[in-house]
Computed example of a mutant assay.
Amino acid sequence: MPLPRPPSADPLVALADQCVQCGLCLPACPTYRHERIEAESPRGRIALARGWALQALEPTTAGDTHLDQCLACRRCEAVCPAGVKYGELLVEARRRQRTRRKPAVPQRAIEWLAARPAALRRLMAAYRWLWPLLPAPLRRLPRPPEAVAAPPRIDARSDRPVAALFVGCIAPAYEGAAHAALATLFEACGIGLRIPTGQTCCGSLHAHAGDTDTAADLARRNARAFADAAQVVTLASGCHGAVAAALAPGARVADALDVLDAARDRLRFRPCDARIALHLPCTQQAVAGSAGALRRLLAAIPGLEIVVLDAGFGCCGAAGTAMFMDATRAASFRAPLLAQLESSGATRLLSANIGCRLHLANGTAVPVQHPIEFLASQLATSC
């Protein structure tokens, strides 16, 4: 048995050295399942990043492509017996990659907009207006719905618990109905909801592209915006990890589905004789951990039939900016899920991450919703 390596002073090498190269991550990795080559696996990318860090390997276009094509789903972390922090390793590897290879202009434009939610909201309002006039290739996202009034700010003197909702960057254009639905469900549970001003993008998109400086700045801004919040809730599983890491130690950050599940005895749902499809995003399973809560909440709706979309490679392929930067490849990950959806006969599709929802909705005519919206639509009474 080989002796363990001494700890490296290089943080990337230290993270890489935790990998024992067992290969248990391979079946969990969407890109390995898609390509069936070692370079598209977590351990292949770990070896590549380590080789670059030790200057044992020269950076190449092919190597950069393999690192680029990681979907940052972190499914490998969930099955790793050695506890390798692959997410941290990927961010550091891409940070170093970014210092020697500047990102493409479209990538930089998306990052710029995500860090400026007000500008993004104006752009999405224009996109909604122009959408019917645009040719299909330019409809890179579904048409934003009509605006829905935000939940009112709860009086701080109220004696009931109040949760602060993290909104993020793109959500205001698409999630107004989900925010209103969450306020309705929380009201039934005796919980107030407010949306703090001053918050911004969670920074995951930037960190996953190696722009750690911007990600850190966004984290500081969110920490200030939520400094007085006793409870913070997230709706997008892709934002959850970054929000939890950004806030002060001890801050209570929870997926909204977990909060509702804890108060499930206060909710009553009407029977629903329907078949729905359920998509469980990678980040919901590997980071937020709210898949079980969602299943229990849906199981509380009498008569509901659920088809879990599990065809294909384990990921829808949205992966932050991947659905824009490599649309053809992203669509190849999505295709098996949409085929399963089509054959299932489901009347709607639920997914708890906004990026996944937008990517899936752009490939199907079946209505795609946040599960919160569907749960609120079935709410009967509260006790």
Rank of each mutant, 00 (worst) to 15 (best):
R143S: 04
A183G: 13
R121M: 06
R122V: 13
F166T: 02
T381S: 15
L165T: 05
A49H: 01
C383N: 14
G83M: 08
G320H: 04
V308G: 00
A56H: 12
C316W: 07
Q21D: 06
W112N: 14
T328M: 09
L24Q: 08
A104G: 15
R334D: 04
L48W: 00
A262F: 00
V84Q: 05
T65F: 05
Q340Y: 04
L141Y: 10
R357A: 13
G241A: 14
V148M: 03
A322N: 12
E40C: 01
G23I: 05
P172A: 04
R139Q: 09
P144M: 07
L235S: 10
R264E: 11
D255E: 13
E175F: 02
A163D: 07
V259S: 07
S41C: 00
I46S: 04
P135C: 13
A178P: 07
F186P: 06
L358G: 05
E175G: 04
T61N: 03
R143W: 02
R268N: 05
I170Q: 02
A150Y: 07
R268F: 02
W52N: 00
G198H: 12
D159N: 15
G83N: 10
R221W: 01
I110N: 03
G23C: 11
V91W: 00
M323F: 14
F333C: 06
V162T: 14
E92W: 02
A331G: 15
A188Q: 08
I154A: 15
R43M: 01
R121D: 15
A223M: 08
A251T: 15
A150T: 11
A136L: 06
L218D: 02
S351W: 09
G63P: 01
I170V: 14
D213P: 02
T328V: 14
L57C: 04
L134R: 09
V91T: 09
V105L: 15
R220I: 05
A9Y: 00
I46P: 07
V232L: 09
A109N: 04
R45L: 03
A319C: 08
A115M: 05
T65Q: 15
P172W: 04
L182S: 10
S343L: 08
V233Q: 07
L133C: 12
H179M: 15
R75T: 06
C25D: 11
A164Y: 08
A229F: 01
A244K: 13
G317K: 09
T31R: 01
R357S: 10
R357L: 07
A147I: 11
L57K: 02
E187W: 00
A39Y: 00
P161M: 08
T184N: 05
V20D: 12
T328I: 13
Q21I: 13
V91S: 01
T31C: 06
L182A: 10
L304T: 11
T283A: 07
V287S: 00
A365P: 04
R160H: 14
A244P: 00
R268L: 03
R275K: 15
D68S: 04
P2D: 12
A245M: 01
F333V: 04
E88F: 06
S41I: 01
I195Y: 11
Y174P: 04
L3F: 08
A125R: 15
R194T: 15
Q340N: 08
A331K: 13
Q369T: 13
A149C: 06
C80F: 10
E305L: 02
R268W: 08
R268K: 09
A56M: 12
R153D: 12
V233N: 07
R95G: 03
A339L: 12
E146G: 03
A181D: 06
